[in-house]
Amino acid sequence: MHKRQWENYYPLQNLLTLSLDSPSGFRGSAHRHAPEQKHTICPDWSKTSPGFIAGDVPAGVWKVTISVHCVITPDCSYELTVRGTGR
């Protein structure tokens, strides 16, 4: 019976998690299978991506961690682009 349970996980997909820390501390993480993702961090709860904490976006060094949980394709890459309003 347990040998058949692996079929419940099809189709298998790559899984990378993006975690974010601001100069003030942990701001959240995105644990999703989507091959392309866009996340927003801002003071407004309604515009902040699920999994992240809304609040001030202070200047300073932010830390992005990309954790690799599962890679099943021959190639797996990522591109990280950070944009700000400069306010």
Rank of each mutant, 00 (worst) to 15 (best):
M1L: 10
H2M: 07
H2T: 08
K3W: 05
Q5I: 09
W6R: 11
W6Q: 10
Y9C: 02
P11H: 05
P11R: 09
L12E: 10
Q13C: 05
S19K: 09
S19Q: 10
L20R: 02
P23G: 05
G25N: 08
F26Q: 06
G28N: 03
A30Y: 01
R32A: 11
R32F: 00
H33K: 06
H33L: 08
A34Q: 14
P35M: 07
Q37M: 09
Q37K: 08
H39D: 10
T40P: 00
P43H: 07
S46D: 09
K47S: 12
T48W: 00
T48P: 02
T48F: 03
S49I: 03
G51R: 01
F52K: 00
A54V: 00
D56G: 13
V57H: 06
V57G: 04
V64N: 03
T65M: 08
I66Y: 08
S67A: 15
S67F: 01
V68Q: 15
V68E: 13
H69L: 03
H69D: 13
C70H: 13
V71Q: 11
I72H: 02
I72R: 08
I72C: 14
I72Q: 07
T73S: 14
T73Q: 13
P74R: 15
D75W: 03
D75Q: 08
C76T: 15
C76V: 12
Y78N: 01
E79N: 12
T81L: 14
G84W: 06
G84F: 06
T85F: 05
